[in-house]
């Protein structure tokens, strides 16, 4: 791969829309982080893999958790190890570099070739987390204060950030990102997705399952609407049990695979039960 920005056109296994391609290419050309948002199960995380694959670059992943701090992504100074080593006289304690461990972001800067860095579910961390990353993502460099060394990215990594919108991200952070919102797949795309996961599935079952699925999604009283992965699981269960006909009524088979909340199950039973359909 040359260092000049190459165009992303999706891959064989990752179906991407025109808007998504434009967003990825903007991020590549302008060398800005790409922020991807969308409902769970719309393939936000897979996008990074697809981009890495199509650019032929290595993918580094940083899974953000509620306890993650921005510093963890750059480097961690293992003080406790050093303290113990000094106590028990193991190793060269004076060489502080031995106790600096690079985080995913630090590693992507230090890497010799350009890499794709996925910062997954950035909104899981504390509200201040994205702000702490602003400078590093902007300048693509940081300083290890313990050793007084600068880590400067030789090649700006392609940064892809996903968010489930659990927390509002700060404006200053948003301004620096290229934004893309992944739509929930429409029926046509969903049929292709189901086809990828369950090749050779009976067509009438696919048709019926999709119909039920979108009817449920349009049912406004649900607390949690089923998403792609739930549909795929549900069809797997249907297939395993040899079900050939599904219809949205009170004895819909394995509804628990689609709806995970008790209130939702009750609401559906109430609205679609006993054959009388009430429009939701």
């Amino acid at each position: 791969m040359t260092s000049s920005p190459s165009r992303f056109r999706g891959t064989d296994s990752y179906l991407s829309s025109e808007g998504l391609q434009a967003a990825v290419n903007c991020a590549l050309t302008l060398q800005r982080p790409l922020l991807v948002r969308g409902e769970p199960g719309t393939g936000k995380t897979l996008l990074a893999e697809a981009v890495a694959e199509s650019l032929g670059q290595r993918l580094l992943t940083w899974h953000v958790k509620s306890t993650t701090r921005a510093q963890d992504g750059l480097y961690v100074y293992d003080t406790v190890q050093r303290l113990y080593d000094s106590r028990f006289g193991e190793g060269d304690v004076r060489d502080i570099r031995r106790y600096i461990r690079m985080g995913p972001l630090g590693e992507s800067f230090a890497s010799k070739e350009r890499v794709v860095l996925l910062i997954d579910e950035v909104d899981k961390a504390d509200v201040e987390f994205p702000n702490d990353l602003l400078h590093e993502l902007d300048r693509m460099r940081f300083r290890i204060s313990e050793t007084n060394e600068d880590v400067v990215a030789a090649h700006r990594p392609v940064v892809i950030i996903t968010s489930n919108n659990e927390k509002e991200l700060p404006d200053a952070f948003l301004r620096r990102c290229v934004f893309h919102f992944i739509d929930f797949p429409d029926q046509e795309l969903m049929r292709r997705i189901v086809g990828v996961h369950h090749p050779g599935l009976d067509e009438s079952l696919t048709e019926q399952a999709l119909k039920v699925f979108y009817e449920l999604r349009n049912f406004t009283r649900l607390r949690k609407r089923p998403s792609t992965s739930e549909l795929v699981d549900w069809i797997a269960v249907l297939k395993a049990n040899g079900v050939t006909n599904v219809k949205l009524d009170d004895n819909l088979p394995f509804l628990g695979a689609l709806l995970k909340r008790e209130q939702d199950l009750m609401a559906v039973a109430e609205a679609f039960g006993r054959g009388r359909r009430t429009k939701a």
């Binding site: 434009a22 967003a23 903007c26 050309t29 948003l174 934004f179």
Partner: peptide
Amino acid sequence: ALAGALKAGLHDSSLDGFYHVARALLVHAE
């Protein structure tokens, strides 16, 4: 940012392309 993207020809000189590029760069929240 938008000017930079247009200069780089990301919109393929079409309004479709411009729509997608502008949306990616100008909008930050759904």
